[in-house]
Computed example of a mutant assay.
Amino acid sequence: MHETIIKKPKVLARFLEGPHLKERECFLRQCAAEGYSLSMLRKIAWILLSISPNLDFCHGKITKSDLEQAIDGRVYFIKSSKHKHGSRQMFIRFATKWIRNLGLFEDFVKEKNSFDIYISEFSRYLSDERGLSPVTISTRCERLSWFFDYLNSRIDSLCSITIADIDDFIKEKGNNGWKRSSLASLASDLRSFFRYAGGQCWCDPKIADVIESPRIYTREGLPEGPAWEDVKRLLNDERNCPADVRNNAILMLLAIYGFRRAEV
């Protein structure tokens, strides 16, 4: 499976030499069968390889605390000033799914709340009537679970939820480091649920219409260039060898005239 998703020989060798190769391969095949994209499969493969050295499969069940210690022990998270909240959540999600798939995860019995029946019915609707993929359904239901867990301590009825509760939840995720694109996806999933819930007379049907997504700018995903002061300092760096004179001319074409790399 790794040979299918990773093409560079040196990178592939690193994945194949890592611990728990057989278990990682089986899980990647399962994720591919569930419809995950190639880029997502690469991320999952990297997550599994990253945490594998810190997991011991020979000494009984693995708890959520064990997984979190294995994840938080990585240098990537230790050095991060913002703790990479979104990445950490993704690591926990797929690590938990992997260990549970192996039958080694020590589950705690989660107390059911009053919203679980709505999530189950919504999941059935997405599968049977909308025909969405298992990955999409799982993602939407997981986000709904987060939302209802956020509300459960103070609200126990769907009809009691207001737009202020939804806005506060989205705002909290933004404060935790979610990007605007992720927040827009979250708002879309909540809007989808409340549109369905309104049609079933579970709540006010107008809620879905007033759930707002953050503004997504057209070129937001483009990489940012250096500040103009940095560009000027680079261009004014005096060097006399022929290669530096040539490179300075290339940089001027790129920075001042906006030439593309292929046009120089």
Rank of each mutant, 00 (worst) to 15 (best):
K110D: 02
P19G: 06
D72Q: 12
S188E: 08
L144N: 04
R124A: 06
A227N: 07
R195F: 07
L28H: 01
L132W: 01
A249Q: 03
P9Y: 08
I211S: 08
L183K: 09
K7T: 11
S123K: 14
F105E: 00
G199Q: 11
G131Y: 00
Y217E: 13
G60Y: 13
A32T: 09
K79Q: 14
F194I: 01
T162W: 02
M1H: 10
V109A: 15
R24S: 09
A33W: 03
A164W: 02
W228H: 12
A255L: 07
T96L: 05
H2E: 06
R260N: 08
K173N: 08
W228N: 12
I119G: 01
A197I: 00
R154P: 00
I6M: 06
E229F: 01
K8P: 00
G174I: 07
R246T: 12
E238H: 10
R154C: 04
L104H: 13
L102M: 15
R261G: 01
C241Q: 14
E3C: 04
C58Q: 14
H85I: 12
F77R: 03
I99A: 01
F193H: 05
E3A: 12
H59V: 11
D237C: 15
H20T: 05
D116G: 04
A208G: 06
E129C: 04
S181Y: 08
S157K: 13
L41Q: 10
G225E: 04
N176K: 14
Y196N: 05
Y196L: 03
R140L: 05
R124K: 13
I99D: 01
I161L: 11
V245L: 13
G103Y: 03
A184Q: 09
D107W: 05
R143N: 14
K10Y: 01
F147L: 11
E129R: 12
S80W: 10
K8T: 10
F94C: 05
K79D: 12
S114H: 14
L55T: 01
V75R: 15
F122R: 12
F91R: 06
T218S: 10
A33M: 11
S87V: 09
E68K: 11
I92N: 07
A184W: 02
D128Y: 06
F57V: 07
R14I: 09
Y257R: 13
S39R: 09
E3R: 15
R239V: 02
D156V: 01
F27I: 05
N54Y: 15
D128K: 15
N152V: 10
K179R: 13
L235Q: 04
T136C: 03
S123Q: 11
K179D: 08
W178F: 15
I161A: 07
T218V: 04
R29F: 05
L67S: 03
L254A: 09
L254S: 03
K61D: 02
K171S: 09
A255N: 06
E34P: 00
D128N: 13
R219M: 09
P134Q: 13
F105Q: 00
K112Y: 00
G86H: 07
R14G: 15
K10F: 01
K171D: 04
D107I: 06
N113L: 03
S182V: 04
F27N: 09
K8G: 01
W98S: 02
G221T: 07
F27D: 05
I62K: 03
A208S: 14
T136M: 04
D128C: 11
N101Y: 13
F15P: 00
C141Y: 00
M90V: 15
D116P: 00
E3P: 02
I5Q: 04
A197F: 04
R233S: 14
R180Y: 12
